[in-house]
Nucleic acid binder design. Sequence first.
DNA 1: CGTTAATTTGAGACCATTCAATTTCGGTGG
DNA 2: CCACCGAAATTGAATGGTCTCAAATTAACG
Lengths: 198, 198
Amino acid sequence: MIREGQRATECTVLLRGFAYRQKILSDGDRQIISIHIPSEFIDLQNGILGTADHNVQSLNHSEVAAIPRAALMDLADRRPAVRLAMWIDTLIDSSIFREWVVNVGRRDSRARIAHLLCELALRLERTGVGRDGTFDFPLTQEQLADATGLTAVHTNRTLQSLRRDNLIQLSNGILRVLDWEKLREVGDFDELYLHQQI
Amino acid sequence: MIREGQRATECTVLLRGFAYRQKILSDGDRQIISIHIPSEFIDLQNGILGTADHNVQSLNHSEVAAIPRAALMDLADRRPAVRLAMWIDTLIDSSIFREWVVNVGRRDSRARIAHLLCELALRLERTGVGRDGTFDFPLTQEQLADATGLTAVHTNRTLQSLRRDNLIQLSNGILRVLDWEKLREVGDFDELYLHQQI
DNA sequence: CGTTAATTTGAGACCATTCAATTTCGGTGG
DNA sequence: CCACCGAAATTGAATGGTCTCAAATTAACG
């Protein structure tokens, strides 16, 4: 959808499906930097900064709305409320990155994955996708690994351990959270950083 | 300087000295999320979001300017250029976080530290602090460790390995980059993400 | 100088990786 | 509907990078 180094001419909002942002290292390894669910801006920052510093890919069949950069800037100039909302959107984005730094920097594999699952489940719930602790979750284990800084093999084993403890159920692209409280605890999850309290 | 959960009433700009932002995990571990040098905003995002989601600490004796949140917002409303500049400032912040996710997520200890040193050296150079590859660098090895997701012990050994290869010199709070190109290569460093090209 | 913080060193343990092989799953064509 | 295929998930065993714990050395500072 967007390639690193590319000049931004428009901004896109994800309407349906999942998307993710990633960076590729010189040795071919990759790190997934964020995962996006419907209704989220996926490259607002590129629109403002001008040059993309990372790639954006769609995860499954997805649908986006592209807004010309100029139109967006014009809107921002004329509507203070919209402008502030967009700024806040990018700031929450930023807050999530900070938490991800913590996640990959200081948590062990179980906590990393539990934390990521908590975050996504909560965000999905908040946007009304999925309910009763059941969500679409189209990430492969390899993608999950690249998002948590682990290998696919170890991600597999860690997921098994979370399943064994009856914290989650994950198969066929469907995630079911069986024990919210425990999962939160394992993932050291505190949602303050999502800045979602209304 | 700022404590997690605290309501923001003012924004601060760092005038002298270093500062850093950190998050403390429930088990007491900590992750340093960013390091700030003079002339940078250290909590603009808190000013806009309202609640701090992390702590900010000063590293050495430092000096800051505190701007009342209301005054800043007022300025933003009346001066489009300033407003955009502030937005861009927070976006570059965000871009740096993304790179840090990659750094702690997918690079080994040598690369992590080399990358961090490259980033800071470049930022210091750009703001005119230090020259000839020589910079103030007041981080202790423990803080360096918390910024790279390593332990202090391993950070020590890794620094020794970088010194042994004549890439850097680091002691008494002074960093000297001896071989820019090699250090860049070891750290897999590409400055695009700093968005500093003028 | 004395005291505490910071750095350095050593050895052993462990979490996560690597490499390779096997099994399961989802989709496709005959 | 079954056979087939590639992708994804799973398993095993060995390796290795980083951690842990503890002690020694050096630097910083009043």
